[in-house]
Amino acid sequence: MGAIRLENVKKTFGNIDVIPGVNLEINDGEFVVFVGPSGCGKSTLLRLIAGLEDVTDGKIMINGVDMANESPAKRGLSMVFQSYALYPHMTVYNNIAFGLKMAGETKAVIDEKVRNAAKILNLTDYLERRPGALSGGQRQRVAIGRAIVRNPAAFLFDEPLSNLDAALRVNMRLEITGLHQELKTTMIYVTHDQVEAMTMADKIVVLQAGRVEQVGKPMDLYAKPANKFVAGFIGSPKMNFIEGDYARARDCACVGVRPEHLLLSTEQGDIAATVKIAEHLGAETYLHVNADNIGPMTVRATGEVPLSGNDRIWLTPDPERIHRFDKNDKAISN
């Protein structure tokens, strides 16, 4: 069981309001991802939940009990750190066993749990090694092993994959998703990689400057961003924003169109543009164009498109999939 509810959680460092007040509901077994730009307070919020940082105000309800003033150990949560934070002088076995030992488990129980975790994470061959003699991915797995043996109410991950190379990151992403499906434990995962956010999350929490901008399923955030910030943050390449006459003609301050929702033509369309740079990725092509009277835009076309710099093109936004924003950057429903 691991339902977590944040009620009006505030955090100030000195006189800086890092988290001005967050309300959030996390259901048992959910995979929740916190995303947001660097410095927006993702780590701080996670550390508040973990108990590594004291809240300035507010309640942290874990399974219905306010834990805001309890020590980290009492909250029954496990954390995986970005730096792994393995104990360098202990073997992998002892690293994983440490929490159980502190909890006063018997040797036999510890041994069984450690070996079980090692089996799940493919670490059985490395149990006698020290962390210094492991690769980055293996260290990451030890850190996860240390988290799972304690059978926590929820796992907290702070950018666990950011020290890994791209290929390994994809692997570990799948492993963590698999682990979640197997254990069905609540997981809170901090990242600023939106591919991780979109692929892993049941629920994404978008943060900006310590405020929750929007909470929702990945595809809901993609299809119905609540404001311009979320619209620009979710989705890659970023959404195009068109202001001026084009927006005024549609009764709003700003129109947003995702690069993949622009119909491309070399003969005619709504918006005339000149190609600046064409990035050919094989399966798709990114065109960075300069639209007349509008400015730079990005277009994503499927497959290979025989275009290059200085070609004239015409773009037509898919009318079903344009987003309109008012002058306060709030989305206007269509």
Binding site: A85, Y87, M102, A103
Partner: peptide
């Protein structure tokens, strides 16, 4: 490393255990 102490804290180690084990 501060993370190591915090990891030990999450693992339920008190100040004395942290001193002797970490």
């Amino acid at each position: 490393d501060r993370d190591q102490k915090e990891a030990a804290q999450m693992d339920g180690a008190g100040p004395i255990s942290i001193f002797f084990y970490i």
